[in-house]
Amino acid sequence: MDAERVAHRNGAAVVTEHARPYYTSVGNEETVFKAAYRQGLSLLLKGPTGCGKTRFVEAMAHDLERKLITVACHDDLTTADLVGRFLLRGDETVWVDGPLTRAVREGAICYLDEVVEARQDTTVVLHPLADYRRQLPIERLGVTLDAAPGFGLVVSYNPGYQSVLKDLKDSTRQRMVAIEFGFPPPDVEEGIVRHEAGVDARVAADLVTFGQAIRRLETGGLREVASTRVLIAAGRLVAEGLPMRDAARAAIAGPLTDDASVGRGLAEMIDVYLANPAVGD
């Protein structure tokens, strides 16, 4: 995101100046998000990796004039990482707020990306924040914080990637309004690749066509299908002067698989779909 200035209005952190992150709606997701936010409802964004969930949250925080605090969740994320902990500073022990607590105090939007990667005993701390109470108990301090005006909780995950052992509890899900994400329609995705990578319409169209072909594959050797993110990465390499096929091998085929036979298949597809020398070769 561009540099921003944050003021405080009625106790809430308010973004006062920066450009809106580039995001193109493909349905009613913006309407649903803003309605849920105004009602103090938490949001669950579901969709494949690299389809634009994070950019969407950035755009919504901009529209709502709220500071955005993002947490990339992982296996070792603890409750203390989210809420805060006591730390030694010189000869003193001081309390340091975690990102979730900062958002609660400041009235910011807290975005937990890939929330199911965090341990389930960690995500339970979200329950009183995600329902009508809008409160955060901090056991180590013996206090319960009421969320400041403007606070919003947003979590995301990729249902197709998670195992049965990594899923959201029903008790967590039913406290949230869900928005389903997929990859954009071709014309929208071409516009995104063109804008984000700085390439012309022909390059963007060829990359999107190739990406869609990969998404139609039925093979177990792919870690993920081609996301909009990897198409943008390939486009940026083309913008730097790399031939289209070299860019696709490095930014699309390489990250998607370690399987040699699948890799050969993707290389053959690159030669078929991206063979036109007018688009980068």
Rank of each mutant, 00 (worst) to 15 (best):
G254I: 00
F33A: 10
A267L: 01
V26I: 15
E240P: 01
Q120A: 08
P186E: 11
G211E: 01
E190P: 05
H62G: 04
D76M: 08
R236Y: 00
K166W: 03
L141C: 05
S171P: 12
A178W: 02
G40N: 10
P128H: 03
Q174L: 13
E58L: 11
K34L: 14
L43S: 05
R119T: 06
H8D: 02
F183I: 13
H62W: 14
V164G: 14
Y273Q: 02
P184Y: 13
A226W: 01
G235W: 02
P137A: 04
V94C: 09
T209N: 08
L168Y: 05
G40H: 05
V177I: 15
V26R: 14
F210S: 10
F33M: 12
F33L: 08
S227D: 02
P243C: 02
A148S: 12
Y22H: 13
G235R: 01
E240V: 03
G211K: 09
V94N: 07
I214K: 09
R236V: 01
R140P: 03
V14L: 13
L274M: 02
E268N: 03
D246V: 03
V15P: 06
D167G: 13
Y157N: 14
V125A: 14
A204I: 07
T101H: 05
D259N: 10
V94Q: 11
A234D: 00
E189I: 12
G160E: 12
V96K: 09
V262G: 03
D131G: 13
G265F: 06
T219N: 10
D187A: 15
L100K: 06
V104W: 05
G142S: 04
S163Y: 08
L165V: 12
E218S: 15
E4H: 12
A278V: 06
V15D: 04
V26D: 03
T79C: 06
G84N: 01
P243V: 01
F33C: 07
R249Q: 04
A201I: 08
E268R: 10
L88Q: 11
L136R: 07
R9F: 13
P149D: 02
D206S: 14
T78K: 10
V230F: 02
L87N: 04
A108H: 06
G11Q: 12
H195W: 12
L41K: 15
A253R: 05
L44E: 11
E4W: 06
P243E: 02
N28M: 10
G160N: 11
G50W: 13
Q120N: 10
A36E: 11
G142E: 05
A108D: 05
L129V: 03
V15Q: 09
I192C: 05
E58W: 05
T78I: 08
E180L: 14
I138A: 10
E180T: 13
S156F: 03
R173M: 15
V96A: 10
A260I: 07
I69F: 04
N276D: 15
T70D: 00
M176I: 13
Y273G: 02
K34V: 15
H18V: 08
D200Y: 04
